[in-house]
Design a protein around this nucleic acid. Structure first.
Lengths: 193, 193
DNA sequence: GTCTATATGGAGATAGAC
DNA sequence: GTCTATCTCCATATAGAC
């Protein structure tokens, strides 16, 4: 399907798709041309830095989505409990119930990690930090909160790997359910003390 | 350092290293030549199918290691409890406490997954199956065993992703500790009934 | 801004001497 | 078995007309 592209940001969703499907090295300029509907001329007009700039832009867009949809709600919500539930809903939607890969995670395992080191690092650090913050405000003691947050982020990433390896997206939803109930249990447990 | 290469299998460890470090697409023939110490002539003599055959051979070698070191012990050990402990020790050693990537997991997230679909699939399916078998024989009821096994494999893969993304290998060891105690707790819990 | 044509390099792979 | 030379192809990137 042809895309309507009038400015740089209109191309980002297609670029996101392409990198997710083919990986950074696997996404050739001709593939990108095809999937975005933009010729090389336009592509280099919008992204003078070439593929690397395209990927940086996509990572930036992903980060922005997570910041507004996930990280900020976790950090600022009046009700941290429901912010955590919202996180699971958003994440499930974002990863299409396990049939969509995490581009940042894929970059982390790839040799391109070093080229996008800061963006990759921050994404995971922010996620862990924001979730730990919500857990703490929900009554979970500090060290447990950090551990639970890390466990949750690890589970999400692992589930995406295994789901794709087995071609069984259900692994992802099962995992989300499991860690979510574990988090909520940890919170109620604390509140009862 | 130069390698002593007299037969095909002598090249596998170097190939394994190269693919782990550069990924499948990122590992060019000149990189491979350099790291294995073999010229293109020798390389194509040993692997007429080129890069794809090299990767297949590496995946086969990895699988064989896991079958003998991890899967068979899990399935056959007289004492499933200690087989499970052994698994965690072997896995920690194999992944160098989180500083080594899982090549199969990396392939799963990459677009090369489809080219090695069966090998990628089997690796994870076998791991889950073998661990579930050990858990069942240790007294864990069937459905719980499968869920716990899946959770464990998911955690290992996720920990490798996050450890590499954050440049913090400790994430891996922490995760192993956590899932190990959870498994052992589940088993003792069952045995007390 | 978007196109076509093109430059240049390195990729994977092969041939054939030794 | 291992080497060097070479083939072909497609990659990223650029130039310049429109």
């Amino acid at each position: 399907m042809p895309k309507i592209v009038a400015e740089r940001s209109d191309a980002i969703p297609s670029l996101d798709e392409v990198f997710r499907e083919y990986g950074f090295e696997g996404a050739s300029l001709s593939t990108i041309t095809e999937k975005t509907g933009l010729g090389k001329g336009s592509l280099y007009h919008f992204f003078p830095g070439g593929k690397e700039e395209m990927a940086t832009a996509v990572l930036g867009e992903i980060d922005e989505w997570f910041v507004t949809q996930v990280f900020e709600p976790l950090r600022n919500a009046d009700d941290p409990r429901s912010a955590i539930s919202d996180m699971f809903r958003s994440v499930s939607r974002y990863f299409r119930s396990g049939s969509r890969v995490c581009l940042v995670g894929a970059f982390a395992l790839d040799n391109v990690r070093d080229r996008f080191r800061a963006q990759v690092r921050d994404y995971f650090a922010e996620w862990c930090g924001a979730l730990a913050s919500a857990l703490t405000r929900a009554g979970c003691p500090e060290p447990d909160a950090a551990a639970l947050a890390e466990e949750t982020v690890v589970a999400v990433q692992g589930a995406l790997v295994v789901a794709r390896a087995l071609d069984e997206p259900e692994v992802f939803e099962r995992t989300l359910q499991r860690v979510q109930s574990r988090l909520l249990a940890a919170i109620s447990g604390e509140e009862q003390r």
